[in-house]
Amino acid sequence: MSLQVENLRVYYQTLRGDVKALDGATFSLKNGEIMGLAGESGCGKSTLGNSFVRLAPPMRFVEGKVTLDGQELPIWDQDKMMPHRFRDISIVPQYAMNAMNPTRKIGLMVSELLKTRQVNYAEMLPELHRRLDLVGLPHDVLGMYPIELSGGMKQRMVMVISTLLNPSLLIADEITSALDVSTQKAVSEMLVEFRDQGFVKSMMVITHDISILYQIADTIMVMYAGKLAEKAPTETIIHAPRHPYTKLLISSLPKVGVTYTQKKLTGIPGNPPLLLTPPTGCRFRERCPVAYEKCLEEPPFVAIGKNHSIACWREAAPHA
């Protein structure tokens, strides 16, 4: 197990009270696992990713334990997290296109970044060149300003920088959502390549686009309104989901080759609950077609099969 998360709760502080954006997440990542994290906007998937890297106000750590390679991460203490960032855990942010300093040439920026981690840029240079070759960027980019690169090139550059010190865990937050389809494919395949080459041990790929996850992820975890709904191998989530939310979500996705005249798809009626005052019990209850009395209690996130966990009373205990 490279990453273990137990009962992690992270709230956002607002004047009107705490927004319970991440309310009790327990899961683990195996060595070499690429886990996709899917869900609608506001379900807490980015909160989960960001909390491993920088849990700063207005985010508030409530409780939970994060263990990476057998070592507990002090994610609530920003100063103590400093030595872990970039070396053990690294992020490719949502807007990677704007993640680089526009006033520095890229090479200089990388050398400054490495200096903060007591790494010599000159010694690192051959490896940096090798990785630039791998992602198909010319070595000249190190002498360029970020503005001279296209969106896809910047994204690839940020990926190379983020993984330069071989972190154990890489968090990729919506890295493909602003890219064209052809670039999207190249960047996604690069993530798999980075794992295969051993640059990163495990990866969390956060996206709302499940079809991308189907291409690259080993497992998919689905979140709903701050809670984990289901985690299973990719094939299981796509072809045999168990949680009612996952089922509805997958069936609402138009597949290439489907037209509305042949097969009319349906959305999920209703809206996610407000996380300022979330309902008790199962948070999907209001929109769930199979909800019953038991759902007034909160369903635990339990294993129902090999590598398959869900938080649903009806599916976890079908004969109840």
């Binding site: 052809s182 291409q215 997958i250 290439v256």
Partner: peptide, 28 residues
């Protein structure tokens, strides 16, 4: 089903689909 232009063919091969995985094609 039957894209003709090389660009359209590249586009169709790059679309992430739920019913099949990306083919190993050299693109871009």
């Amino acid at each position: 089903d039957h894209p003709l232009h090389p660009y359209t063919r590249m586009l169709m091969a790059s679309v992430p689909r739920l019913d099949q995985k990306w083919q190993e094609v050299e693109i871009d």
